[in-house]
Design a protein around this nucleic acid. Structure first.
Lengths: 356, 356
DNA sequence: TTGTATGCGTTATCAA
DNA sequence: TTGATAACGCATACAA
């Protein structure tokens, strides 16, 4: 009996109506209130009736209607995890970590796409009004938003919200994110230690993360009195590639000897531009990125990167949102998770790839 | 006015109750059925009242309750797109293509996680019973399942379902997938043309896709009377790596000169094993995969791969599910989409990576 | 064109 | 411990 039975049979027949609480009550010979009770608070109903209800329910393949439940209770028993960019592996991993932690605590985390972007490339995502409207009336216990949302006010104001891997205005809502400033410090320190004095930075295109990482770079660089160069780019491979091409227009003397990109993907694009132009990495120019996505760890790539500690981000976000759902969140917190630096070939070691 | 207002104020205060159709009716001085009409079929209500209703609605920030709507109409105005593995870029891209096509046709596609796997590595996913139960009562117009579901019967039997990028039993439900047999032919033909006579194949671990690709390989190879070798693996980098290590235990004479992996990720793992052992790709061994994920196209990787034509898969699935939602799907179709071969360095060209 | 009554599946309140 | 009944927010059929 496949899923499309109705389509197969010539006559649509009657759609196999789903069993309701009334059907179960009738079959078990009790009132519907008792059936409801049997599901919510089994120990308050006598053993005998409980058994009758349960067998009736399973025979009818009954489960309480989510919709009807949330209509009366004004609340749905799940926590929504809104991901703003499914193409970004960082977000996926963080979101999944949130979900796992939620499950461990007996909560049901529903992971769904929150972005309305037709084409995904902008990290600074717009929340899909349709999804929001749906969520608004579904009334999940709480919401986790993964990634920076363009418009925070679009979210239901009466549901606890936690942001993770997002850059939002401090104080308005709880936010868990990697400490980019610390990450940048790790990176710059590493590069300086390995002998670099002239650093380039490939910027993001827009959004708070862009600004904050850029500010962190400028601060790290000026504190040390280093020469620096800002290369406009974005979060895409293409953006990094263009930044690389622009860099190569400079006279050799002025070129940075090491380049940090706003994220790993852009770093990858930069590498492509550099190598196409006959430069070696890290021989002629060292490269590093942010996020430490899967890609960065592949031997052929070997990209030095700041790891945001995805599991920890997800775990903390889950705990925060659980507190919110319990009504225990007294105020909006702004939690920074310590990143770590993963040093690979792209910033050190031999310029040529030698796997042996 | 953040999202957590309720948490900030010491006293929880009364939750800012959401405006209902009655509030709007009262404010606009009409009956609630007229408000309902104004939202569903505006042209059936007089201009003047329509205006009053609309301003009242926006003043109260009212939008129809999704929950109440689907409770009465027995249907929710969206199409669910269930993704079985969010870590698999292939699925993400296909799912997004489905969503885009749906949007073009005025439908709302909700992309959500359908897998209950704690750790994601098995491509042969288990549908999350919680998600299913929720969906069951939400009653979306239709469902698209992206990826192979372990248990097809778990899905609501009274909602049209279309599978995409999945391997399911023919005939039970509509299924859109890449023609793996054709893809394998393209690949084997390419390798034979470039001089290879001894081919290896890294298998998947389980599931129908695993079986079908393997059968396709064996068929392609035996038709041509080629020597071949099956290397047990799975869909992960680690699986490909282990397969590679096993291959290297063989005396050089018996080793295949080209290896096809069940997917790109496994191919990547194989490359790592080969290069760690001092072999060059494609000098000592040519490598190719399936799926043509983003990774495969990066110059440093340059992996020859069978491209499943993700946009087309998504588009066809969307069209099929639209037909199903309209009740126009007369029977379960099994549609194969023609793949293309993308030849890159890993199977041809110079063994050493030279970007210039 | 507009208003009224009823039902959707469940929970909550109250009686029994 | 159990059962009757009123919400919940909306759509639909019907009446005006």
């Amino acid at each position: 009996m496949g899923s499309m039975t109705a389509q197969h049979s010539g006559t649509p027949a009657r759609p196999p109506k789903r069993a309701t609480i009334i059907d179960v009550a009738a079959r078990a010979g009790v009132s519907k209130s008792l059936v409801s009770l049997a599901f919510k608070d089994p120990k308050r109903v006598s053993d005998e009736r409980l058994k009758r209800i349960r067998t009736a329910a399973s025979e009818l393949n009954y489960s309480p209607s989510f919709v009807a439940q949330s209509l009366t209770s004004q609340q749905s028993p799940f926590i929504g995890i809104l991901v703003l960019d499914f193409q970004n592996p960082l977000f996926i991993e963080v979101a999944d970590a949130v979900r796992r932690t939620l499950v461990e605590h007996g909560e049901f985390g529903l992971l769904l796409n929150g972005s309305s972007a037709a084409t995904v490339s902008e990290p600074y995502g717009t929340l899909d009004p349709q999804v929001l409207s749906m969520l608004h009336s579904l009334r999940p216990r709480a919401l986790v938003v993964v990634g920076t949302a363009a418009d925070q006010n679009a979210l239901p104001a009466d549901i606890p919200v936690v942001y993770v891997s997002a850059a939002i205005t401090r104080g308005v809502a709880t936010c868990i994110r990697a400490d980019d400033e610390a990450g940048m410090e790790l990176l710059v320190n590493h590069l300086v230690t390995t002998g670099h004095q002239r650093l380039g930075y490939i910027t993001g295109s827009s959004g708070a993360v862009t600004q904050e990482r850029q500010a962190a770079f400028e601060s790290s660089v000026s504190t040390r009195g280093l020469e620096s160069l800002l290369l406009p780019g974005d979060y895409t491979e293409e953006g990094g590639y263009r930044a690389g091409q622009n860099l190569l227009k400079l006279p050799k003397k002025q070129r940075p000897t090491a380049v940090i990109a706003v994220n790993d993907i852009a770093a990858l694009g930069f590498i492509r531009a550099a190598e196409e132009a006959g430069l070696t990495v890290p021989g002629d120019v060292a490269v590093a990125g942010f996020d430490n996505i899967f890609l960065a760890g592949i031997p052929r790539i070997g990209l030095t990167s700041v790891d945001p500690n995805k599991d920890e981000l997800g775990r903390r976000a889950a705990l925060a949102v659980l507190a919110g759902a319990e009504g225990k969140a007294d105020e909006a917190k702004y939690l920074l998770v310590e990143p770590t630096l993963v040093v690979r070939r792209s910033s050190t070691g031999s310029p040529k790839y030698d796997p042996s």
